[in-house]
Amino acid sequence: MENTPTSKNRANGSAEPAEETGPGTDQGAHPGGDGPGGRNRAGAESRGRVLVVEDDADARDLISHLLRREGHDVVPAAGGAEALALLREVEVDVILLDVMMPEVDGLEVCRRLQQSPDLATIPVVLLTALDDMETRAAGMRLGVSEFLTKPIVKDELHRRVATQVGVRRREATLDRVRTRLDSLEG
């Protein structure tokens, strides 16, 4: 799956100036993510495009900032409806989704994603309170990939997002192996 930043995406981006996240940044210095056994830290392989769905503007800006600084490409959305609309236009690797939002909340977004074959495979990281077992259980049933506990801890955010971007990379690698097998079988 191609993962080049598009102008479409930039246009959907927040008002913040686009940060350059090329190989010249310090991200490449992170160890790990380099083998089947490596825990993901943000290396070149684990940078992707993240849809950040959070109705609280401060939280959304902070999360977006942290992810951009780690080298990810961020598409912010202020609510569930906006997120679902954006997903029709932009391809993303991971959806970071707050649970508590007015109107279309996080679990409802999950439900709608599940109904769409194209969107159901995008990993969802659900932002939830630590004690909220009910939401966690509901999220489990709705195919959520990870939970991220609020208040957000930076390292945890990066670890969860990197893991799920890594999943997308793995999918791409397996796709390449399938292509190789096709050519072997002629």
């Binding site: 999943v167 793995r170 190789r180």
Partner: peptide, 13 residues
């Protein structure tokens, strides 16, 4: 043909 199996934490679902 290399086939990489994901760790469980990458497929919690």
């Amino acid at each position: 043909i290399p086939i990489a199996l994901p760790p469980l934490r990458e497929r919690r679902s």
